[in-house]
């Protein structure tokens, strides 16, 4: 009988703990939502962040990168507002200037989702200053000029710059020539977006498919 009594007490305690956990979680949910927004608003920035990581700046950059993707994913599923994305990607790249993916991703989101290509281009310029030998950054900057600001002369300039850097693929030269000769061509934009669809990450692929649909390209899914 004593054994049963102990079991009943254990079950009651476990049930109380589960119920309490549920209540605490519900109470915390609203606070967590607000805190997440504030967290990014007050996300540290500037060169001091780098010092504060005590030599572990690339691991800290990865954490900020993962948080930035999470932020993008959350807002993609809700209000589709990405106001803090530039701020977060700036921190990631302050911590790890050689990490090139955040420049491209942040610039694409600012250009295509926020409709602020100039901010995106500023991030790309920062990337090119830190990685002057990286052909991809020059190429993507040309791309953003082509589809974002529609400055085809600038696009041609950056494609040409990409085609002069080590490791560039043969299509960089082709795109430089296209952009220079046929500025404003819809076919060129479709070509560029198809390349993103084939090589970008899953979020960029979705943006590419949407842009391809907008351009009326029938080949995409």
């Amino acid at each position: 009988m004593r054994g049963w009594g102990g079991m009943v007490v254990a079950v009651v305690l476990a049930a109380a703990l589960i119920a309490l956990s549920g209540m605490v979680d519900r109470a915390d949910r609203a606070r967590r939502g607000a805190a997440a927004r504030e967290e990014l608003l007050y996300y540290p920035s500037g060169v001091w962040v780098r010092q504060a990581t005590l030599g572990y700046e690339t691991a800290a950059a990865d954490l900020a990168w993962l948080r930035g993707i999470q932020y993008y994913g959350e807002h993609r599923l809700s209000d589709q507002r990405y106001d803090m994305i530039g701020h977060v990607m700036n921190i990631v790249t302050d911590l790890d200037p050689r990490f090139t993916q955040p420049y491209v991703f942040g610039a694409f989101v600012m250009s295509q989702e926020l409709g602020q290509p100039q901010r995106g281009l500023e991030l790309m310029e920062k990337g090119m200053r830190a990685n002057p030998e990286d052909w991809k950054l020059a190429f993507e900057t040309g791309f953003l000029h082509y589809v974002g600001t529609h400055d085809h002369a600038a696009a041609a300039r950056y494609f040409a710059r990409a085609s002069a850097l080590p490791g560039h693929p043969e299509y960089a030269e082709r795109f430089a020539a296209f952009a220079a000769q046929r500025a404003g061509d819809r076919d060129m934009a479709i070509l560029l977006w198809k390349r993103v669809e084939a090589t970008g990450n899953k979020y960029m692929q979705e943006v590419a498919r949407r842009e391809l649909r907008r351009l009326g390209d029938g080949a995409e899914g």
Partner: peptide, 24 residues
């Protein structure tokens, strides 16, 4: 856990965390 979340940067993230964790 991190690889699918890192948008193609899983190798970098895992190597970074591995080196930082070892040193720490």
């Amino acid at each position: 856990v991190l690889s699918p979340l890192a948008l193609g940067e899983g190798r970098k993230v895992v190597t970074d965390f591995g080196l930082a964790g070892s040193s720490l």
